[in-house]
Amino acid sequence: MSRLYGLAGLALVAALLVGLGWLGGVSHEQGNAAQVARDQLAKAFEQGQELGTVRDRIVTQYVDRVQVIKERGATLIKEVPVYVSAKADAACTVNAGFVRLHDAAAKSLPAPDPAGDADAAPSGVALSAVAATTAENYTTCNANAERLSNLQTLLLEYQERAYGGQAPP
């Protein structure tokens, strides 16, 4: 009987040791998982800080460049009377067909119906107005091109920081 008690005690001690070992292993793994989570959070925070810095730099460059483009466009528009005089306005009639075609192109619409006699008539739009409108349109186009270029630069820098020069998955 005492042997039975001894074996039962030994089994109890063994079960306690196994249980304590298991609890110790679980605790160790939970600690490792918590450390990995803290490391990931710190890395994500650092990347966020870097991306914010990149974004601020790109936006500042964009705003500066677009401002220069708009100022140049405004200067060109102011200079239209110097390059297209009142005499040139009077000498050149802008026909209705040109105006219809220009407006369709500016709005990315299909070509208007085939030109007819009505399209040959003067439109009442002065040549100087055509020059000013064209300068304004090109200014807007150049500002949009600058915006696209800066967005592409921002995206490439984000990818560089996020993927370390590797192609994204």
Rank of each mutant, 00 (worst) to 15 (best):
M1L: 07
S2R: 06
R3I: 10
L4F: 12
Y5P: 00
G6S: 10
L7G: 00
G9C: 07
L10I: 06
A11F: 13
L12V: 10
L12K: 03
A14L: 14
A14C: 13
A15E: 10
L16I: 05
L17E: 11
L17G: 11
V18A: 10
G21P: 02
S27D: 10
H28M: 08
A34F: 14
A34N: 01
A34R: 13
V36G: 00
A37D: 13
A42L: 10
K43F: 04
E46Y: 07
E46R: 07
E46N: 07
G48D: 02
Q49E: 15
E50C: 02
E50D: 08
G52Y: 10
R55W: 03
D56S: 08
Y62Q: 11
Y62K: 10
D64P: 01
R65W: 09
V68M: 15
E71H: 10
G73P: 09
I77L: 04
K78P: 04
V82R: 03
A86E: 14
D89P: 05
A91K: 14
C92P: 02
C92E: 01
T93Y: 00
V94S: 03
V99D: 07
H102M: 12
A104N: 08
A104Q: 05
K107R: 15
K107Y: 09
P110Y: 00
P110V: 08
A111W: 01
A111S: 13
P112E: 05
P114R: 13
D117T: 14
G124V: 11
A126G: 04
L127P: 06
L127D: 05
N137L: 11
Y138R: 06
Y138Q: 11
R147E: 14
L148F: 00
N150P: 01
L154M: 14
E157P: 00
Q159G: 02
R161D: 09
G164C: 02
G164T: 01
G165V: 01
A167W: 00
P168A: 01
P168S: 01
